[in-house]
Design a protein around this nucleic acid. Structure first.
Lengths: 359, 359
DNA sequence: TGACGCTCGTGAAACCTTTCACCAGAAAGT
DNA sequence: ACTTTCTGGTGAAAGGTTTCACGAGCGTCA
């Protein structure tokens, strides 16, 4: 066996004379294994060829001493972190939370860590999050900008940090982006509503300043126009919070004629619609059909279960991470723009409209 | 004015002769301001007294050069990061997502970053997340253990990392913990159900191996026993996923007599209950009352809105972060155990039971 | 005037790893 | 036998910051 020429304690955590807990460094490993620190480093990184016998010896010692590479020192030297920053407008949306979870899983599987920031739907906060992360020399940034201004754009460009825009994509042409084809999704869904007989459809969005939302609205209106029913369709865009949407919807439902279908273009719109429809005692789908955007668990357990356009979270995460990894591994090709298709989960909350009773 | 003796480009990002983007370091700032790097560092940290005039000069130069302190190097030297690790069993639970969001906000406000890991309810994954974070020398760890084994316990203890256990607290007596008084919460809620007249109450939990769940069950059963109605009350614990719970509940609801109230002890139980009650055409609260644990937005918009025990997310986050900061700032007092009270959101889904029709 | 104490700054070491250039010795080619 | 080519390994520098001990300049006091 090899010599342990310094007699290190074999405990995982070492304490020095003063009793302070002392980190086990590469140096300790080296001297315990009777090799140079360069060799230990080589073993650690599989860099140059090291004699198999030495590799084994070093490995053993590392195990005994409970050595763990210091990521901070490692990062400082090779100028490349294994951390990527993730900044989202919020974590409270189930969709984004799911996205974050998937991304975290993919990252961890490849030895990366995620520094997560929540911008709270506020551009200024987004900026400060990004800034803080850049100071950590993150290997890359995954970002869902709060709004189309994408305030941190110039900062990121200046630093040349690898960046992938996800979900809230727009025309930031020189960044990679991965998103969903919102326009196509609402186009298809609206067509389907029309197919089953709806003519008076009310779309309920949030705010037109979010690119995603704008695309969804466009898809809806395009489908309506194509079917020649624009005049009996409407779009509501009262803002982002449940309360405003509820109020706007409330007012609309006091007027006649009622829509035969409500297409909620976001999850919060769906909530508002559910509330207002319920308050007015309108039954689904007998009186009014309801179709949501973003599919959540609770929608499926309701009776009737709520139909929804479902975003492919997993795929979104996969593509995003793949792009990130390609960039990190040195891909310098032009910015790519990936758009995935949504699926339409047609459930019992949507059905043919009630037959019109002539006045 | 001062001399810019090296003629640095004043651009935010500097590029060297080879065109590589070059980080602006403390050294650049120092030479541009005509002072030593130690002085710049002192200005940066407000350590020793520096002449106000110099401070201003250095500040100006830092602004012009777009200098940003390299957190990695800084961390390496002072052995203290401004990053804390957060490992949760999942981010997909709205409760934990909200907790994470709050924590992130508090952390960021004090200049800290969050390294976030999702254990996916799996002890092994929890361990590997914790391990990876420790290699980053995080200043602390905030952890909601997957189950009562708390596998990373010894690892953390060995490294002496400051740790706060949140939500999934149990008897890890030598760690700080912040949680909710589950027992008290279900005790109060059950009492209330009894008060309004319920005698046959069915509690629906998930798995007894989660300490939280066990406490909730105990609270329920204690209240039932105290009221002398244990024999007409039941507890179901079929496991963690929606499907199993649904199945178990389905079977139970085929038997007679039906409970007059269902107390769902977790959010997923609430979903299952909603589904099964709906499927059987049981009306709330006329046929059966429903009370959930964990309050989510969708519960409030349903008609009738669902009653629920609400955990004080904000307070939970605040206490957790406070404790963390105290530890980071050197508090070495014994482990503290904070338990917060839940509130009972009594809504229309719970009401007096139907009057018994004698057979 | 000499000793003393203060203030403001600085050089250099240290944090831990990676990497580059180099070296000793053995194997191989001429 | 002498040079060349590998192979396996090492010393030392570098990465950007913080910190410690020290030093120069200066005002104060006996």
């Amino acid at each position: 066996m090899f010599m342990n020429d310094q007699g290190w304690q074999s405990a995982v955590s070492m304490r020095d004379a003063k009793g302070n807990s002392q980190r086990v460094t590469i140096r300790h490993v080296a001297s315990a294994a009777g090799v140079s620190i360069a060799t230990v480093s080589n073993v650690l990184n599989g860099r140059t060829s090291v004699a198999p016998e030495l590799v084994a010896r070093v490995r053993t010692v590392m195990g005994e001493l409970g050595y763990q590479r210091d990521q901070v020192a490692s990062t400082l030297r090779r100028r490349q972190t294994s951390v990527v920053g993730l900044v989202l407008p919020t974590l409270m949306s189930p969709f984004l939370a799911a996205l974050a979870t998937r991304l975290e899983g993919l990252a961890h599987a490849q030895g990366f860590q995620l520094l997560v920031g929540s911008a709270n739907e506020d551009a200024e906060q987004e900026l400060s999050r990004v800034q803080a992360m850049l100071a950590w020399r993150v290997a890359g940034m995954i970002l869902a900008p709060v709004d189309k201004r994408f305030v941190s754009q110039s900062l990121i460009r200046d630093q040349g940090v690898k960046t992938v825009i996800v979900d809230r994509t727009s025309d930031h042409s020189d960044f990679d982006s991965v998103g969903v084809n919102n326009l196509e999704a609402t186009l298809v869904a609206t067509r389907r509503l029309i197919e089953v007989g709806h003519r008076r459809i009310l779309a309920v969005g949030t705010s037109r300043s979010i690119p995603n939302m704008l695309e969804r609205i466009t898809g809806f209106e395009t489908a309506a126009a194509a079917a020649g029913i624009s005049s009996s369709c409407e779009t509501l865009c009262p803002g982002g919070d449940l309360f405003s949407i509820g109020k706007a919807l409330h007012r609309r439902l006091q007027q006649r004629p009622l829509p035969t279908a409500v297409f909620a273009l976001s999850d919060v719109s769906t909530l508002a619609a559910l509330q207002e429809l319920g308050d007015r005692g309108l039954r689904m789908p007998e009186d009014v059909s309801l179709l949501g955007f973003d599919d959540h668990e609770w929608m499926q357990v309701l009776r009737p279960p709520i139909s929804a356009v479902r975003q492919p979270t997993d795929e979104l995460a996969r593509h995003t991470w793949n792009r990130m990894m390609q960039r990190i591994q040195g891909d310098v090709s032009g910015a790519s723009r990936i758009q995935l298709a949504c699926s339409l989960e047609w459930r019992a909350s949507t059905a043919a409209p009630p037959v019109e009773v002539p006045a």
